[in-house]
Amino acid sequence: MFRHTPYDGTSQPFTVGLKPVAEEDWLDVDSGLARQLAEKERLFKEARDAVFRAEPQTEAAQREVLDLVVGHLQRHCGASHQVGTDVVMLADTGRQVSLNEGPDLLTAARLVQEDLVLMRPGPDGYRLVAAALCFPSSWSLAEKFGLSMTGIHDSVPGFNGSRMGQMVARIFDNLKTGQVLCRFNWSVYPDGELHHPEPRQIQLATEEDALARLFLRVERQTLIRLPGSGDILFTIRIHHDPLAVLERQPDRREIAAGLRGQLLALDPAQLAYKGLVTTRDGLADALAAVAD
């Protein structure tokens, strides 16, 4: 069953939508933990330069992130993580992660399903100074590393020079230590791959392909300020669900109707950004059949 369904109308695309959540709900652990962490291990081993980068002078902030993650796991995730002095053992696989091998941001990312991105204030606003980014949604760390929020979001319709961009800048400036803010983003993908740095344009042969072949990709994003450095940790947790599962959801009619409404409300620039220019109408028709 789907864990998060922001496309049902509870969250709107291309809006800020940040809401406070309790500290105990900061990280999002589910039954996909072992599979996603195994994929991270593969990427860190085979393509480390593509999925991990860090500027000099970020070591102290990276250590803060690791301490924050380990402390959270110890307090709230005892069923999935057994935290020791120097290692964390993943309960379902028995695999152990050393806490002393570094870099610390990479070590933290090996423990959780979230990707971890460090944003640091500078003359042009907050910019990306370190990241362990294994599961990007149509963007690459190489393209965005070192950029400010403006540069990172240059391709996002309606962000730069808009109320949305200004609101995000104010939220970053005013975020207090101890606060956890959360938002959701969703998109449609043609396959179930987690590592998706390349842009996508979805093509469907028939309307029936929409539910049989497509995937709903949900990003659960959080913001938290590090108490020592003052940097902001941005986390991205990917949920990637086959649309075929929708027909087994108890609330499938409401979800289908909400997703269809959001698809039909996208303007041409938003459709192009989401890769749905030629697919939107066929997908909307397939969802209408589920919603009836």
Rank of each mutant, 00 (worst) to 15 (best):
V83I: 07
G84E: 11
G84H: 09
V87F: 14
V88Y: 04
V88P: 03
V88Q: 07
M89H: 03
T93A: 11
T93I: 04
T93P: 10
R95S: 11
Q96L: 06
Q96H: 04
V97P: 00
S98T: 05
L99T: 07
L99G: 00
N100E: 04
N100L: 13
N100A: 12
E101S: 07
E101H: 07
E101D: 15
G102H: 14
P103R: 10
D104T: 01
D104Q: 08
L105H: 02
L105D: 00
L106Y: 03
L106R: 03
L106C: 07
T107P: 04
A109D: 11
R110E: 00
L111P: 01
V112N: 01
V112S: 00
Q113L: 04
Q113N: 05
E114Q: 08
D115I: 02
L116G: 02
L116N: 02
V117T: 12
L118T: 04
L118G: 00
M119K: 02
M119I: 02
R120F: 01
P121H: 09
P121L: 01
G122D: 13
G122I: 03
P123H: 10
D124L: 11
G125A: 09
Y126F: 15
R127V: 07
V129W: 01
V129I: 09
A131K: 00
A131W: 06
A131I: 10
A131Y: 02
A131T: 08
A131R: 00
A131H: 05
A131V: 06
A132R: 00
L133Q: 12
L133D: 08
C134P: 08
C134M: 06
F135V: 11
P136L: 07
P136Q: 06
S137T: 14
S137P: 09
S137W: 04
S137D: 11
S138V: 02
S138P: 03
S138Y: 14
W139E: 02
W139Q: 10
W139S: 14
S140A: 13
S140E: 10
S140P: 08
L141I: 04
L141M: 09
L141D: 11
L141A: 07
A142S: 15
A142K: 11
E143G: 09
K144T: 14
K144E: 15
G146M: 13
L147H: 10
L147I: 02
M149D: 10
T150V: 09
G151P: 15
I152L: 14
I152K: 06
I152M: 14
H153G: 13
H153D: 11
D154K: 12
D154H: 11
V156G: 06
V156M: 07
V156F: 13
V156C: 13
P157M: 05
P157K: 12
F159A: 06
N160T: 06
G161E: 15
S162D: 14
R163E: 15
R163N: 13
G165R: 06
G165N: 11
G165P: 13
Q166A: 15
V168A: 12
A169S: 14
A169V: 09
I171M: 15
I171F: 08
I171R: 15
F172C: 14
D173P: 12
